[in-house]
């Protein structure tokens, strides 16, 4: 998935946070953002790397990319879609 050149509207640092708060805080941020905007979420809680993208996808958001940024942290790129 090519995400180079993608404009990130907001970044959320959730290092130190555990599930389900990683998902909830990501969702709260997305709810405040406009449709089409991209959120970059940084997590360091290993289960969140899988759980946050899955839960956000279930809510109708589009996961663009999940990538490691260093040995402990992961970045999740998610695009806001208007949720009914």
């Amino acid at each position: 998935m090519g995400t180079s050149g993608l404009q990130v509207s907001r970044e959320l640092n959730l290092k130190g946070k555990v599930c389900p708060y990683t998902f909830i805080e990501s969702m709260l941020a997305l709810e405040e953002m406009a449709t089409g905007e991209v959120l970059r979420v940084i997590v360091d809680f290993p289960p969140a790397v899988c759980d946050v993208p899955r839960s956000l996808k279930n809510e109708g958001y589009e996961i663009l990319e999940v990538t490691p940024v260093n040995p402990t942290d992961w970045a999740i790129l998610v695009k806001n879609r208007e949720v009914e």
């Binding site: 998902f23 969702m27 709260l28 949720v83």
Partner: peptide
């Protein structure tokens, strides 16, 4: 806007499908 405490208090229902901060 939700405080850290509110997110903790309501977390188990905020994660329900179609609930979230809006609910």
């Amino acid at each position: 806007k939700f405080s850290e405490e509110q997110i903790h208090r309501y977390s188990r229902q905020m994660i329900l499908p179609r609930f979230g901060g809006r609910g």
